[in-house]
């Protein structure tokens, strides 16, 4: 729960700034790769930022995928390039990305 509390302390301004920085990354990596869905990633980036940096998704950064207390469910939408779930542990500071 400690990580949950810490994430909650991010202010709305910090969340907006995080979202803009991640938007930069979405554009950088998709152009560099010459592939991906940047516009579909950008439309969801504020939502994803709140979920993963706003203290909504509870997780243990040292534990495995199954240890998420609020688990993300993959869909066609999630599998789009820069929003891929495999990226998200990296975004949120986790060192293990065992999401299959």
């Amino acid at each position: 729960m400690a990580s949950d509390t810490r994430l909650r302390e991010r202010t709305l301004e910090e969340l907006r700034e995080t979202s803009l920085k991640l938007s930069r990354q979405i554009i950088e990596i998709t152009t560099r790769a010459g592939s991906g869905h940047p516009s579909s990633s950008l439309s969801a980036i504020d939502i994803l930022t709140v979920l993963y940096f706003g203290g909504v998704m509870r997780y243990d950064i040292c534990a495995s995928w199954m240890a998420w207390k609020r688990r993300p469910v993959r869909s066609v939408k999630d599998s789009l390039s820069a929003l891929d779930m495999r990226w998200q542990p990296a975004w949120t500071g986790a060192t293990t990305a065992s999401t299959s």
């Binding site: 554009i27 152009t31 991906g36 940047p38 516009s39």
Partner: peptide, 16 residues
């Protein structure tokens, strides 16, 4: 809205 289409280098500079 450029669905599934990365920006070109030039467009990328504008967007960034």
């Amino acid at each position: 809205r450029k669905h599934g289409e990365p920006l070109t280098e030039e467009e990328k500079q504008i967007a960034l």
